[in-house]
Design a protein around this nucleic acid. Structure first.
Lengths: 220, 220
DNA sequence: TAGATTGTTAATCGATTAACAATC
DNA sequence: TAGATTGTTAATCGATTAACAATC
């Protein structure tokens, strides 16, 4: 049910989520079948790449015909476990945490934010959207009941490592980390990092070579 | 001043921002010198990797001694253009946009959010923190004055492609995109994508193999 | 059947890591 | 000088792409 044999490259997993996004669109547009060449046209991802990515998980298409959109969509969703509820804990009820709770994309993909924690007593007990903000100290106790395995870390950098340890102690083994540091976690825990500054820094680097567009911009 | 000769691998650029983060810490702790082996200890990034990453940009250390923390910090900041103000336009004054304007990490790295745009008339004219929300239709006009080259796209998916085109038309050539789609932009424009759902999907996938931690959790 | 397109093997490309001569 | 650590070359590893036999 998982990757047939060995391990799946990380970039493949990342692309899988992209394919899914496009397949959901195509389903809405009542498109029944697509070929890998059409996927390349839509997404810009090489057709061979697409077929190779799928090959880690089995056979999905018919030679000479292509892929059934609905079937492929549902099989990719299944591979990524997006066909079942995933309970998620959020730590950090600041601006970012608030934006995440309000982000509809999570619910759409069946990620269910089941609790929000903070250590700031002026926030504890208040509501973030429809969720009451809980005392960070209750993390383990609360998750003994909720049994979420995913956690989102939206706290300041200085707090991140210790909160991560708290999450792990509470049974979380997948962490989405927004704090700009490399977390130390036990080997069974998977961490994904999102760093706005890193992303902007990479963009900033690339500005160097480009000519300032304004100078060229005569028309308009 | 840029990469001596050829092109720099993307992963190298991403790591550069990480090194910088740790160097700033070390500077605060008054650490004067570090070796690549110490960097590996701190960050978990292979020492040879670190030296190789730097080698794309010149020589930074002294054999037998190591690297001067302050100098290395400032040179990496210079490479990434984080030693000068970068003006950034934000489009989308929703929850995410609001979180970004309030995020202090941007200012710290000299990213300056100079204007916020939205097309929702109930938002235009109101303030997001200290910035007035401007009519999206005024993007080009406003940026003719501000001359920002970076843009952040924090709008719903359906609007993203057309807003991206507006940004490019307004002279932006670096885009940080939070909408879950692959933007079509001219070749001179660089795009970085951040997708919360994609990140969570990759984590969700990995849950499969791991044993539920709670079951093992006997000690209290 | 003829045409189209898959799944997969082989070839290419690029990034990571190890090894080491140069050098402080 | 002896010890430490760099910058870089060479070896390894892994991911992308091209090519094609299998097959609908």
């Amino acid at each position: 049910m998982n990757a047939s044999n060995g391990k799946v490259p990380m970039p493949t997993l990342e692309r899988l989520a992209n394919y899914l996004r496009y397949l959901l669109d195509l389903e809405q547009e009542r498109v029944e079948t697509i070929s890998s060449a059409e996927v390349e046209q839509q997404t810009g991802i090489n057709a061979a790449q697409f077929r190779k990515d799928l090959s880690y998980f089995g056979e999905f298409g018919k030679p000479g015909v292509g892929y059934n959109v609905a079937e492929l969509q549902s099989r990719i969703a299944h591979i990524l476990k997006l066909d079942q509820e995933q309970r998620v804990l959020l730590v950090g009820a600041g601006n970012l945490g608030s934006a995440l709770v309000g982000y509809p994309g999570l619910k759409e993909h069946r990620f269910n934010l089941v609790a929000v924690f903070d250590n700031n007593y002026s926030k504890i007990g208040r509501k973030l959207w429809d969720l009451e903000i809980l005392d960070l100290g209750r993390l383990k106790e609360v998750n003994a009941v909720l049994r979420a395995r995913m956690g989102i870390l939206a706290v300041p950098r200085v707090a991140a490592q210790s909160v991560a340890e708290g999450l792990v102690d509470a049974g979380v083994d997948s962490i989405l980390n927004f704090a700009p540091l490399i977390l130390r976690v036990p080997p069974h825990v998977v961490v994904r990092n999102v760093s706005f500054v890193q992303e902007l820094a990479v963009l900033s680097y690339h500005l160097s070579s480009e000519p300032p567009q304004h100078a060229l911009d005569a028309k308009g």
